[in-house]
Amino acid sequence: MWRKGHFMLKFLADSLVYTLMGIQPGTRLGDTLHFFFYDTTKVFLLLITIIFVVAVIRSFFPPERARKLLGHRREYVGNFLAALLGIVTPFCSCSAVPMFIGFIEAGLPLGVTFSFLISSPAVNEVALVMLWGLFGWKIALLYTATGIAVAFFGGILIGKLKLEHLVEEYVYQIKMGEAEMAVPTWKERIEYAQGYTKDILKKVWIFVIVGIGFGALIHGYVPMDYVLKYAGPGNPFAVIVAVLLGIPLYSNAAGTIPIVQALVGKGLPMGTALAFMMSIVAISAPELIILRNVIKPKLLAIFTGIVAVAIIIVGYLFNAIL
């Protein structure tokens, strides 16, 4: 079915660009337009279906459930479970504060809480769809496994450093109530998933189009191996620069992945590309600003540092083995 879909989309892009627009295949303009139409239709189809499915799964895992499941876990098992739950629990940086407090109040060790806080934004559905659509499922899976590993080890390290005193004092004084929430019906889950998909699409569609547009231009007009000269294996600092660049970029996660994909086509090593993409989604300025409400600047810096270093290590590791 996947192959059939691929042929359908290719046929559509072929007929649109080569037949309807009358542009010759093999020309720069033809390649660029074909790349653009093929990738945008593919990515939007994937976005709609995957986000919908993810949203249905998420309706089964509200953060209140993660809180209960993690409440009595110790280190290691807790870190691993938190990293996994981070993927399926809906996360919005606007809810980072109540989530953080809820976890700490339930007695979760700080390190376990951070495993959740790292994996939740790092492995998000939009990034996964873009990776799957543009790089294939193997890279998407590799990215997910890497995100879980970074969250697991990062959380353990933060736990070992015993930084509980760097959490704002008021957090420990809050008592959380018990909300009686009705279990949603299937109809409600579907409605939630539809609304969620619409919201995400509304937020990212422009980035997707602009990103793929830029990617298509790079694909069609930037000479082969151009990137190889600057960010290829010949530059030992490429991964570090890529990760540092990625930290302040956030809202453009949907837009950056197509550009990164085009750059990979021009010789950017896969490890550097993966590290760059992960630093874009895992650490973001708005999330850090919000987390500042519950943790002190020093812990914020330690958290950012640990995640950045972990991603850099992953980048070099993949450059070495891929």
Binding site: S95, I174, A179
Partner: peptide
């Protein structure tokens, strides 16, 4: 107020 929000047992706003 975050204290009051949490007192309702809510983790998402």
């Amino acid at each position: 107020d975050i204290k009051e929000i949490m007192s309702y047992g809510v983790m998402q706003t």
